[in-house]
Design a protein around this nucleic acid. Structure first.
Lengths: 206, 206
DNA sequence: TATTTCAGCGTACAAGTGTACGCTTATTTG
DNA sequence: CAAATAAGCGTACACTTGTACGCTGAAATA
């Protein structure tokens, strides 16, 4: 079985991406990766890297895209679990936490590069997070909130879930369950707080 | 005016710390700093670095401690503003956002190293954040919440405020105001959501 | 079949890194 | 005053890094 040129190229490209992911899993942060190291891990000559990516940054962007996509797909699957059984909040948090436990490196990449040095990567990550917020915000709107409130709720919820993910990175299983439990409580605070604001006669500032 | 040996040593130590902070301000992430670079900026020989820190990591820990302290002091000052005038939530968010605007590098260090490679730095940052949470949680308890709810509220609030800080790093002034406004709304969601949970009898008529 | 294309390699180089080792020199101590 | 201490320096070494350049050989094209 011989591969066409295009197939072979794609294969090498994947090898590079996978090599980078493997090194991220090994506890390195993205900007601690060197081109040579990635090339070595991918079993190609350093200079061959350039046949596929102009830069380490370009590889980084690819990684962020791919990881963001993976995360979104998981969450989409999670939504099916909701339809069958269970609360929106509970299932979403569980799905997310399962993802970060199974793919700590992917989550870490997104979370870490959010405040990274590279402006390109930062905006790429911001865009991925934005997908979550908008998707959730749209849903909240359909339940009867005005756009501004919906967006604020969605953003807060995403922030809390990501925060829980970050906390759980160094946590032991027992702590992780506790973190998930707390995150759910926090999301309910937001949901019911926003609901209260919706009915202005009950609402009151502190 | 001659300096004693100890004074001179302290002075150089500060020079190193300040050099590192200056480089962080220049848009570098901590683990992109090299010992030589810091030494160069501090105007000492590379090897002199070792007279003060065993490692770059040890310097990092010092930076985190110092930055965390700075942030806490600012927030403590902010609390005085509350006593004189204004809501807890509004003033706290404003104080925090002013800090991140005035010291983006310091905030960035804390936020970034929270998901960094070095376990030591990560736990150091986690501890700094914990200070905030516990302090806020204690306050919330005094207002009549049980410990678990108070902690969940405090944690969520800190997460949201830090999230707002992270968002504002790349934001223009106009957006920054909007981010602050939204953060306040989100904190109010949490406050009133938690309050509702606390007093279930008020939810009678639904 | 003859020609073009291009993924991948090897070599080479300048620049940067951490740190071991021993020296200097001014302060501190006895 | 003499001896001990230790901050800071300079040199040196073994690496690692990104990338420029030109070559090779096989696949694609004509």
């Amino acid at each position: 079985m011989t591969l066409s040129r295009a197939e072979q190229k794609e294969k090498t490209r994947r090898a590079i991406i996978d090599a980078a992911l493997r090194q991220l899993s090994a506890g390195k942060s993205f900007d601690a990766l060197s081109l040579r190291e990635v090339a070595r891990e991918a079993d190609i000559a350093p200079t061959s890297f350039y046949r596929h990516f102009k830069d380490m940054e370009e590889l980084g962007l690819t990684l962020v895209d791919e990881c963001g996509l993976a995360l979104r797909q998981i969450m989409r699957k999670g939504r099916k679990r909701i339809e069958n059984a269970g609360s929106v909040i509970g299932t979403s948090v569980d799905t997310f936490m399962e993802f970060t436990e199974a793919n700590p490196n992917i989550f870490r990449l997104l979370f870490h590069e959010r405040s990274g040095t590279s402006h390109g990567l930062r905006t790429a990550v911001a865009r991925e997070i934005q997908y979550f917020i908008v998707e959730l915000s749209d849903y909240i709107e359909t339940v009867g909130y005005e756009a501004e409130s919906a967006y604020a709720q969605a953003e807060a919820m995403v922030a809390i879930v990501f925060n829980a993910g970050a906390e759980s990175l160094d946590a032991k299983p027992a702590q992780r369950k506790e973190i998930a439990r707390r995150a759910k409580m926090q999301l309910r605070f937001i949901a019911s707080g926003a609901a209260q604001q919706l009915k202005p006669f009950k609402g009151k500032d502190q």
